[in-house]
């Protein structure tokens, strides 16, 4: 189990180092040419892997950036990745809660109301074809004009991305009981509410967790995109933006990795809840 994982990982690291040397070599040669010096291979290696603003930072530089951002700063410092990560995470979680809640409510409507069944899905699909980068600044501006600023506009953008997988998954999940099972509840003269809580909802849980995993990752993307136009307010998105303004590639890559670690952590937490829940329900096998 561990061996193939480590093999893949080391191949990636080796390729990454290779790419870093190759992409950063131009700068080294240019500097040497300006100084009228020759560059030996060992000098090339040493220089390409230690530049301040490399085209592609080497893995150890990103690792050092991450270490510095997480452990070498006070968590309240504007240079701390914990500080920025938390700003993004809180918007992500709020957006995820709004988005998946709205997704579930819409799915309930779709399954129980014919008008909603016919009308909601086309709008939901259309909403996802609009580039989020175009929507995000408008959401920020419009909400700011009515006095809403801070975490909420970012959460709205995050929710906008995350409701969709939940609507699609849960509409399918609520419809997963077979006709026979619905007939059976009819023979008990069960109400629609009873049918929902006793059958449709429990039957939909495997679909719910699958949707939530997609949805939480989308929430994180939404929160980061929401931080780009807001700029100075902090968060991983702001960190990415300022990094690209000032050519701080190590900062960009550290923020990217922080986002990836956050996303992986969130998906793993949902996976753990899924496993525990389905096992308790006797569906874990």
């Amino acid at each position: 189990m561990l061996v193939p994982v480590l093999t893949v990982l080391s191949v990636i690291v080796v390729l990454w180092y290779g790419a870093a040397i190759w992409l950063n070599a131009q700068w080294t040669y240019d500097q040497a040419a300006r100084a009228g010096a020759e560059v030996s291979f060992s000098e090339l290696l040493a220089d390409t892997l230690t530049q301040d603003r490399p085209v592609l930072p080497a893995p150890h530089q990103v690792a050092a950036g991450l270490w510095d951002g997480f452990f070498a700063q006070k968590v309240t410092s504007k240079r701390s990745l914990v500080y920025h990560g938390w700003i993004t995470l809180s918007a992500t979680l709020l957006g995820f809660a709004i988005g998946s809640g709205a997704g579930i409510v819409l799915a309930v409507g779709i399954v129980h109301n014919r008008a909603m069944d016919l009308s909601v899905m086309p709008w939901a699909i259309a909403s996802q074809t609009i580039p989020i980068l175009a929507i995000a600044p408008m959401v920020i501006v419009v909400l700011a004009s009515v006095g809403v600023t801070g975490i909420l506009p970012k959460a709205v953008i995050s929710a906008y991305l995350s409701f969709f997988p939940v609507v699609v998954g849960m509409a399918k999940g609520f419809r997963s009981p077979r006709p026979m099972q619905l007939d059976q509840l009819r023979t008990y003269n069960a109400t629609r509410a009873q049918t929902f809580w006793k059958l449709r909802f429990p039957a939909s849980l495997p679909y719910l967790f699958a949707s939530l995993k997609v949805s939480v990752a989308a929430s994180l993307v939404g929160a980061i995109v929401g931080e780009l136009p807001a700029g100075g307010a902090g968060g991983l998105g702001a960190r990415l933006l300022s990094g690209s303004y000032y050519g701080q590639t190590i900062q960009i890559w550290s923020a990217l990795f922080t986002a990836a670690i956050l996303a992986a952590g969130l998906v793993m937490i949902i996976g753990a809840i899924e496993k525990a829940t389905l096992r308790r329900m006797g569906m874990g096998g």
Binding site: T187, Y188, L199, M281
Partner: peptide, 28 residues
Amino acid sequence: RAYGYVFQAAGLYPWRTIAGNIRLPLEI
């Protein structure tokens, strides 16, 4: 609720125990 109906497939809910499945109509 004049009749009980047994279908071709048992159709037990996998998330309920046997007792829980039998309890289903009683709860409803």
